[in-house]
Amino acid sequence: MKRTAAYLGALTLAATAWTVGTAHAAPPPSGTTTSSGSVERTTFSTAQQDKAISFWTPERLSAAKDVSSLTPAQAAGTAANTRGARAGSAADPAGPEVSVPPAAAPASPTRTSSGAVSPLSSPTAWTGGGLIATTAGKVFFQNAAGGTYACSATVANSDNKSVVLTAGHCVVDASTGEVYQNWVFIPGYANGNRPYGTFAARSLFHDDQYVSTGGNANWDYGFAAVGTVNGSTLVDTVGAQGIAFNSATGQHVHSFGYGGSDAEGNGERLNHCEGDEFADAGRADSTMWGIDCVQTGGSSGGGFLASFDSSAGSGYLVGNISVSSGSNEYHPVLGNSALSVYQQAGAA
């Protein structure tokens, strides 16, 4: 079913700068990075967070490039992905299942459909409202060369009420270890609107195994702990999806993201896929699982949810959109290593 693999966000980001108009925006100073076990944390000062919020004007949001799929090397494609499928990249050992339940939003958005859904083989606009309409959103960030880019992310319930799950490649360049700057999350993003405000990253977290393997997609997850808006935390503002670690695979799952194709609304609306998971058989060391559906560039980092209640729009995050091939999209499994990254993000 899967023959060649392409990272939805494996870009040579440092080589391409996207600017607004003719003015090139100088990259901001880097955050402070510390390590704890295999968890890498990059912390941004209050001044850097304020700068990030000011940086993302409507014009810059519009000009940001959706993180897209193929580099020239990947276009050639092999069963072993050209980035990161290195020998000896062991799978995350299994552990006991750990789950955190969803948190309801203060006020649920009005539904615009009956909530009835059918298995999809191509993404369609999500019109079901519910908790996913407030907890899914877009990520915007800048790289060292001044380029501006967009991904997707989802609010995950946590102790500090401030955590979002996204892809590792939406947090750090695995080829260089560069952690991205001016990083913000806009929950409920739609057509340039920010209905709940802009939340700047206080800290970004990724698994060092993602960088040390040169970008092995098995470790392609990242978390952000964001600041407040008008004194309210992210979860108190929009609610949160549940999240599960070491959960069963082969489940019926739903994925959500802001794909950048014309058919997906050019990154301006939330799209939806669903299907029964199957193992990634196209990469020798892959521990990823996926479905028969593909969301395009910009959907990177969007959530895969199991036990999803379509009428309520809520479920449990079991991964994030990472890799696509043919008509399939895949997510890394959230195991013990991801749990460690999440726990540090939730304590930040």
Rank of each mutant, 00 (worst) to 15 (best):
S68N: 05
S68P: 05
S69M: 02
L70R: 04
L70F: 05
L70Y: 07
L70V: 13
L70P: 13
T71E: 10
T71S: 14
T71W: 04
P72W: 10
P72K: 00
P72S: 06
A73T: 08
A73M: 12
A73Q: 14
A73L: 10
A73G: 01
A73N: 09
A73V: 12
Q74S: 14
Q74T: 11
Q74M: 07
Q74Y: 02
A75T: 05
A75C: 03
A75G: 06
A75K: 02
A75R: 11
G77Y: 00
G77H: 04
G77M: 08
T78L: 12
A79W: 13
A79K: 00
A80R: 13
N81Y: 14
N81A: 11
T82A: 09
T82C: 07
T82K: 09
R83Y: 15
R83A: 01
R83G: 07
G84R: 06
A85I: 07
A85K: 08
R86F: 13
A87Y: 13
A87T: 08
A87R: 06
G88F: 10
G88D: 13
G88Y: 14
S89K: 04
A90I: 07
A91H: 11
A91P: 13
A91M: 08
D92I: 03
D92H: 07
D92V: 01
D92P: 06
P93I: 02
G95M: 05
G95P: 03
P96S: 13
P96E: 12
E97G: 04
E97R: 06
V100P: 00
V100Q: 03
P101L: 00
P102T: 08
A103I: 10
A104C: 00
A104D: 07
A104G: 09
A104V: 08
A105L: 05
P106V: 01
P106Q: 04
A107E: 14
A107L: 06
A107I: 03
A107N: 12
S108E: 12
P109D: 02
P109N: 07
P109K: 02
P109Q: 04
P109E: 01
R111T: 08
R111L: 04
R111F: 01
R111C: 06
R111W: 00
T112P: 03
T112S: 10
S113T: 12
S113F: 00
S114C: 03
S114V: 03
S114A: 12
G115H: 08
G115M: 10
A116T: 14
A116K: 07
V117E: 15
V117R: 06
P119L: 01
L120G: 10
L120F: 06
S121I: 02
S121E: 15
S122C: 06
S122I: 06
S122H: 11
S122L: 10
S122T: 15
P123N: 02
T124K: 13
T124P: 02
T124I: 08
T124Y: 13
A125M: 05
A125S: 11
W126V: 02
W126L: 05
W126N: 03
T127D: 15
T127L: 05
G128N: 04
G128T: 12
G128V: 05
G128M: 06
G129D: 12
G129I: 02
G129E: 14
G130C: 03
G130V: 04
G130W: 10
G130Q: 10
L131F: 06
L131Y: 12
L131Q: 03
I132V: 11
I132A: 13
I132P: 09
A133S: 14
A133F: 04
T134H: 05
T134K: 03
T134R: 00
T135K: 02
